[in-house]
Amino acid sequence: MWAFIHKFGSPKWFYAISARLEPWCWALAALALGVGTLWGLAVAPADYQQGESFRIIYVHVPAALLAQSIFVAMALSGLVFMVWKIKVADMAATVMAPFGAMMTFAALFSGAVWGIPTWGTWWEWDARLTSMLILLFLYLGVIALRGAFARRDSGARAASLLALVGVINIPIIKYSVEWWYTLHQSATFTLTSRPAMPASMWLPLLIMLVGFYSFFTALTLARTRSEIVKREGDKRWVRALVDKEL
């Protein structure tokens, strides 16, 4: 098991294995996003209260869920990097951060657009909106801290630690903000109960979720691979690879 992890963690192996995985992830992402978009925007029935504007849910909910998952994934990668010194984990954490920040922004933006027709305001100091905004600041902090160090290794370890501190704080921030004030509707999907909308509405949402997550996986694999080529440029196997490409 450990041998496998270390083997998988070596840049060369990761590069080879992810090259095989990547096309599948892209294909799944394209398929799920295509089907989900068509189904959600054209086929699913309009909401009886919100009308057509409810269709923003098909972007809003996946983006918001992904934004939170990416932070956890980033912190876990940071932990793996700090404990086992696996460089690939740090490369993955590096490329995850900007995409996570983008997803957080996408969730905030789509929420704002959705808020105008339903709540009559594009911004409200509501618990979930506020904690998403704080999540955005946490992402920006991690990105800025990594960039501030002249030595890449120090920056990597500092960013990993900050991500870990952040991930411990996220639930505390979430619950304290919820205590503080809430207007937002409760979570769309929970593991324990059936969703409160008909299957024709939540099935496309589930497909969109699969699409967003596979897109994230594919993008992370692709960007980690280019990060490997960038950082390991002086290794013989990377040279050979580049020579072959040229």
């Binding site: 704080i134 600041f137 946490l138 920006l140 902090g141 800025a144 801290l145 501030a148 160090f149 120090s154 500092a158 630690l161 900050l162 501190v165 952040g166 704080n169 505390i172 921030i173 304290s176 903000v177 205590w179 503080w180």
Partner: peptide
């Protein structure tokens, strides 16, 4: 501690720390 080695850590320090201060502020 994270920013002590950086020449201009002051502004970065507030970006890192203020989001983490929010629960304490709320209560």
């Amino acid at each position: 501690a994270l920013t002590v080695g950086l020449a201009r850590g002051g502004a970065l320090l507030s970006l890192l720390i203020l989001p983490l201060y929010i629960p304490v502020l709320i209560f």
